[in-house]
Design a protein around this nucleic acid. Structure first.
Lengths: 120, 120
DNA sequence: AACAGTACTAACCTTTTTGTAAGTATGGAA
DNA sequence: TTCCATACTTACAAAAAGGTTAGTACTGTT
């Protein structure tokens, strides 16, 4: 029986790479919204409760920088800019799907009141 | 035609739940190591470069708290304690697998030194 | 001339996360 | 009696992440 290939946990291991790209409080939520359709800045803001304009634009810039999201400027006045998931960005979708599955498993198996986590 | 079921992005949406459980710099790396076999504190420390003892024990506690990891105290002297992934913790493994796939796709498609950020 | 709509930008601040360095407890071996 | 191994614990500091508030630029509309 062969032993599984153990990937070394280093600065450039796949887990760390992925965490760098989509870690943080907002990036996945932005990606998730853009997965449905291209969206304008203001539309994104409405769809993601509590995100500040600063965080939204900041995280969009990071996502654009890493080429997961594309920015389309329509050059109109008043400004019209759309954001959409790039082809590479779409590779995050199976990951998001697994996160959803995991959360479902977890919340169905764990008593929701056993945790003292006042998130709101 | 039916529209896709859009999960609302709220304080209790699956993405946020998952991020709370396994977000941060170290949790997934710990889980990944424990996926192979139960490990002692000192073994984990050796396998995860640069993690401090403080972060290791702190994150282990959080993972135990959320029941993704189990702690087994052998009650010996010098102390012997083993950590292993719980059954629920194993539900993170497909997620980790997807992260690995994503990182591979990403690094194979993106030139590491290019940036097309229109802001720069 | 003031205002509306959109997509930002900037200064400043608070909170959260992570890191460093040292110390504790235990019982047996030297 | 001192030291060793192991698994922590504590106080403090630094860094990163996130939040608040106000303001800019551009034109067309009132």
């Amino acid at each position: 029986m062969e032993s599984p290939v153990q990937i070394e946990v280093t600065a450039r291991c796949p887990i760390r790479t992925t965490l760098e790209l989509i870690g943080g409080k907002w990036k996945l939520l932005i990606i998730y919204q853009l997965a449905q359709q291209p969206l304008r800045f203001s539309a994104l803001k409405k769809l993601i409760p509590n995100i500040s304009e600063k965080m939204l634009i900041q995280e969009l810039k990071v996502l654009i920088d890493s080429q997961l999201v594309e920015r389309v400027n329509f050059g109109e006045v008043p400004p019209k800019v759309e954001y959409n998931l790039s082809e590479i960005g779409r590779f995050t979708l199976p990951l998001i799907a697994e996160m959803q599955k995991f959360a479902q498993h977890y919340t169905s198996k764990i008593d929701p009141h056993s945790s003292t986590n006042p998130y709101e």
